[in-house]
């Protein structure tokens, strides 16, 4: 299983990737929405099952990325989880309306992240308690 981690902070990419790798994922990384779209195009038919998407990033923000992904039929199978410090009610509603499946507010504990994976049906069996 492959996951795409999108965040402009290397620290956050490393944190999320580390946890995903520990759960058995192979991870791809991108520093903004535009880079992420390029990574997705390169991945071709091997669409990641999950993208974690930061909101505030240079070049292309996470909300725009979600909107772009939703216009592409071939990327329909990918689950989109916002992982962002944007914590207002209206922002969460906006992201869900744009097509995000889950929303995790930073800061988050490792347990909260795996809880969200479980809600998406993306927590590998052996890691589920």
């Amino acid at each position: 299983m492959r996951a795409l981690v999108i965040d402009d902070s290397r620290t956050m990419r490393s944190l999320l990737s580390r946890q995903l790798v520990a759960l058995g994922y192979e991870t791809l990384q991108a520093g903004n929405g535009q880079e992420a779209l390029e990574v997705m195009d390169q991945a071709g038919a091997d669409v990641p099952v999950l993208a974690t998407v930061d909101w505030n990033m240079p070049v292309m923000d996470g909300l725009t990325f979600v909107q772009r992904v939703r216009t592409r039929q071939e990327w329909r199978s990918m689950s989109l989880m916002m992982v962002t410090t944007e914590a207002e009610y209206d922002q969460i509603v906006r992201a869900l309306a744009a097509g995000a499946h889950e929303y995790l507010i930073k800061p988050f504990t490792p347990e909260a992240f795996s809880d969200k994976l479980q809600l998406l049906g993306l927590l590998p069996e052996r890691a589920a308690q």
Partner: peptide
């Protein structure tokens, strides 16, 4: 708290049943 709400509450249900 934010950390408590983060524990496995689906976002669509959170926006439906909770307010900040």
């Amino acid at each position: 708290s934010q950390l408590e709400i983060g524990r496995g509450l689906p976002a669509p249900m959170m926006v439906k049943h909770f307010r900040r």
